[in-house]
């Protein structure tokens, strides 16, 4: 495709991203830096502030479908699941708007989402994070990293690797228009196991990657190695997802009182 085609593609993907993902990096950064006119997020830093947040201050209802539990680590695990499920739904709608995605076999669309959504979520999570914590509940709450670290094992191990990734990823200073193309490239990945039409997926991903490369040259003209750095981040994200899947398996095995949302069961089953 020519330059103008790639610019059109970048615009389409950016519009789809802004339309379907509820929390943009722009909004998150404005909340985190205190520059927004809306009220500051409620800070969750210990058990008391967590239950205050759960009593209607931050979340309007307890984690739906999750059994009531007094164990704090289990509770946080359910909250992570709720957010993940909601984001999978948003990512599915985003994927449907990426040019070429709905033309793929339905089976291949399922495969791309199964393997791509967690990488996409961990690529978007840094937008909500700084080194001290992360925004939750659509920006109404801020959970401190220290509180998440203080949970008992294995629950304390859920978020820490994502913070470590986020600190490095945020140093690249991507904006929503860059992230839109990056996330689209993650979803349209030609080497997911079990794809029926690999060539078709590779062709779509190639177009997205060309659009991303061109977009970065214009949007980050002073950062010459940004495109290859992002290709490396794709590999890092795959590793992060593998470790996350192993941790979820461990929690399932050792924490008999926890349950996994049916959508996440589908995604994790026979994944890696």
């Amino acid at each position: 495709p020519g330059g103008s085609d790639l610019k059109t593609l970048a615009k389409q993907v950016n519009t789809a991203y802004l339309k379907n993902l509820s929390m943009t990096k722009k909004r998150a950064r404005s909340i985190l830096s205190g520059k927004t006119s809306s009220t500051s997020p409620f800070v969750i830093y210990d058990v008391d502030t967590l239950w205050k947040a759960e009593s209607g201050l931050v979340w309007s209802q307890l984690a739906p479908g999750a059994p009531l539990t007094k164990e704090i680590g289990v509770h946080v695990f359910y909250r992570c699941q709720c957010t993940t499920v909601e984001t999978v739904r948003e990512l599915t709608e985003f994927a449907k708007c990426i040019p070429g995605f709905v033309d793929l076999f339905l089976n291949d669309q399922v495969t791309l989402l199964k393997y791509g959504v967690h990488e996409a979520i961990f690529a978007m999570l840094p937008s909500l994070m700084n080194k001290d914590g992360l925004l939750v509940a659509n920006g109404k709450g801020f959970v401190t990293r220290e509180f998440l670290r203080s949970l008992r094992k294995p629950f304390s191990e859920i978020m820490e690797p994502k913070f470590e990734f986020a600190v490095k990823f945020n140093a690249l200073e991507l904006d929503d228009s860059d992230l839109a193309l990056f996330v689209a490239a993650i979803i349209l990945c030609g080497d997911r196991p079990g794809l029926m039409n690999v060539k078709q997926v590779e062709q779509s991903q190639d177009n997205i990657l060309q659009a991303l490369d061109l977009h970065l040259q214009a949007n980050h003209s002073d950062s010459v190695y940004l495109f290859p750095k992002l290709l490396q981040k794709m590999a890092d994200l795959r590793q992060l997802v593998t470790e996350n899947a192993q941790l979820v398996q461990k929690i399932k095995k050792t924490e008999s009182e926890t349950s996994l949302h049916p959508l996440l069961q589908e995604i994790y089953k026979d994944m890696y």
Partner: peptide, 21 residues
């Protein structure tokens, strides 16, 4: 694949919100 990924299929085929969160 369809049998094993019913909710993902449902999400892909419906534009409204079919998943009970």
């Amino acid at each position: 694949l369809k049998e094993k990924h019913k909710i993902l299929h449902q999400l892909l085929q419906n534009s409204t919100s079919p998943v009970d969160l």
